[in-house]
Structures are given as C-alpha cells and as structure tokens.
Amino acid sequence: MSKPILEVKDLHAGIENNEILKGINLTIKPGEVHAIMGPNGSGKSTLSSVIAGNETYDVIKGDILFEGESILDLSPEERAHKGIFMSFQYPVEIPGVTTTNFIKAAINAKRKSQGLEDLPAKDMLKMIKEKSELLEMDRKFLSRSLNQGFSGGEKKRNEIFQMAMLEPKLAILDETDSGLDIDALKIVANGVNKLKNKDNAVLVITHYQRLLDYIVPDFVHVLHNGKIIKSGGKELAHELEEKGYDWLK
C-alpha cells in the first residue's frame, strides 16, 4: 500500500470560540477521489479552508499530515508549494493582473521554494498551450484580468486551468459545482478527470450529488455538525440524493 497523501486526525477547528469542526478523521491515498457531502453549515468549507491554511480559522485540537508530515505550522503558500491546491468556491478577482502573469508568479514562487530557477518564458508558454488544449479552453481569457468580469463558469474553468498548471498532489474542489450549468459542469469535471492520475488525489466538497456523476468518487463521507457521520462508496451519494440528509441524523 502506498503512503497516504493526506491524513486528518481528530481535527477540531473553528473561529474564535466557535467550534465548527468537532473531530474529523480522514485519510486520502494517492490515486483516490474522496467526496465530502453535507448540508449547509455542516463545516465543509471550513474543512477545506483549514487544510489550505486559511488563518481565519483556528485549529483547536488534532493534526493534519501531508505526506506524513504535519503542516499545521505552515503558511498557506508553503502548503501550496508542497502540492495542495484548493479550487475556491468564489474565486477572487484581481484587477489589472492577467491570468498569465498570475500563474507565472505562482509557478515561479513554487519553483523558488524548490530551489529552482524561474521557468523560462518559452517553456511557460508551451505549458500554457498544452494545458489549455488539454482542457479544451479558449486561451483568450489568459490575457484578461484575473477573474474580473468572468462568468461563474469561466471562473471555475480558470481554477481548473490553474490546477493543471500547478500540478498539485492534492486538489480540493470546494463547491466547484455551485453556480455552474450542466455544460460548464461537464467541462470542469472533464478537466479534473484528465488531470487525475495514480499519484495524485482529489477531494471534492459538494452539497449535491450532481458533480459526482462526472467526477466519480471512490469514497463518500457525510459531514454533519462538524463530524463525519457516515462513510461509504459512491452509492452513498445516490442514497443521499434520494433520501436527503435527514435520514442520517
């Protein structure tokens, strides 16, 4: 068996004195797709933010290991350099900074942390071309300001594009399906599937089963009130869709 990529151990976290996550345990191995489902307010987005290192949240207890090492003391960018990518539910707009320049800054920051030189412009362009072709994306948006004036679908596709460029070991998709119509959803899911391989892993966070028809999970976990109350295979998602969350409570 291969070594896990991510291990969440008895994680308690929250904002100030308000505990939102109340003891989460989760292990993700290479090649696996996990889905976390749960009603609004169950703590799904908190979990992804805490793994990514958002300082708004405090870890009260427990640990998060990435490839066997605790990452709790690492800054968000250090975690990113290790290979954690989070697709934002609401990708942020940065006026005046083009997507190309942004991704260049991100890739070179990662390379610098690995003691590498900046990626030569030629290679960067080649990579951009490859990845955008892989994802069947129009490259026009690359010269527009990051996420500014993008439609919901464009923003999410841009997230997947960045994921393709940064080649993470663990991709966390936080409510990637929200605000997407079925066509956009397919394109995004398709992209994720193409990027998936035996060495990386995907954690899908979603309210609805819809996305899971396209990104098929190996494991489904149900989060409720800050705890995983049930885990199972992909069929669990369908069950939830039929019966709602109430039958589990």
Binding site: G53, S75, P76, M86, F102, A105, A106
Partner: peptide
Amino acid sequence: GEDQIFYCNQRGID
C-alpha cells in the same frame, strides 16, 4: 482584500 491575499497564498504566492 484579505481574500485576495489568501487566494494568492493558496496558489503559492507569499
């Protein structure tokens, strides 16, 4: 915005 900074951080930019 703090959200802008966090977004950049998450993409590995300090």
